[in-house]
């Protein structure tokens, strides 16, 4: 019995020693294999192309000077994967903020404010417990000028012995004053691989 336990423990140790060690991946120098599902490289590519194009088109430059205020609207996930679309929109928001041309409001959103503290902090008005000089005054919030919306689509095809998965990342930037889309873009991401790979 003891002999069997020792052999089993030794086997486990040998197998553990042969396992691929866990390692960090540097996104700036990642030569790793490509997955059929959408990974961080796909989001980065789509965000890079979108921001590049938005900046080059001049759509996010306020002709009156100053920064535009943008709100993130709905980004529909029409793929077979569970995707948090913030993976895409956050990159765009950060890049636009860094560009000095656009600032995003977190006080407005389709499903309520992204940061509810903006309104909660205003509930302190008239509270005798708080120094009222530090409480936010009425009429200080700024309404958005632009809205970012979009859709991520997925289409699967059989191509010979392989499968082809097509993702389309479609984005629109709407001027809320007129309802017109000031900028629109689409980034196709096409992957072809083994039929055994799963794309959901």
């Amino acid at each position: 019995m003891l002999k069997r336990a020792i052999v089993l423990s030794a086997s486990v140790l040998v197998l553990a020693g042969c396992a691929t060690p866990t390692r960090y991946v540097d996104p700036a120098a990642d030569n790793g294999p490509v997955a059929m599902t959408m990974d961080y490289r796909d989001f980065e590519k789509a965000a890079s192309e979108a921001v590049d194009d938005m900046l080059a088109s001049g759509a996010v430059s306020n002709p009156n000077g100053g920064r535009y205020i943008m709100v993130v609207s709905r980004i529909n996930n029409d793929t077979m994967q569970r995707i948090d679309t913030d993976q895409l929109t956050k990159k765009i928001r950060v890049a636009l903020l860094r560009s000095g041309k656009v600032v995003t409001t977190t006080a407005v959103g389709l499903n309520g404010a992204e940061d509810e503290m903006t309104m909660r902090a205003r509930e302190l008005r008239n509270s005798e417990e708080f120094d009222q000089s530090g409480v936010q005054k009425k009429g200080t919030l700024q309404a958005p000028d632009l809205s970012l919306s979009g859709k991520i689509l997925q289409r699967n095809h059989k191509v010979g012995d392989e499968q082809q998965v097509e993702y389309y990342i479609q984005l629109s930037l709407t001027d809320l004053a007129t309802g017109l889309a000031f900028w629109e873009g689409e980034t196709p991401i096409i992957k072809r691989g083994s039929n055994d790979s799963v794309s959901w």
């Binding site: 996104p27 700036a28 590519k45 890079s48 590049d52 990159k91 890049a95």
Partner: peptide
């Protein structure tokens, strides 16, 4: 910018491609 990753492109023989 948005990220640090390299952008990939495929080229066919004799093809001219322009990148911005």
């Amino acid at each position: 910018g948005v990220g640090d990753a390299y952008r990939r492109a495929s080229l066919l023989m004799g093809q001219n491609r322009f990148f911005k």
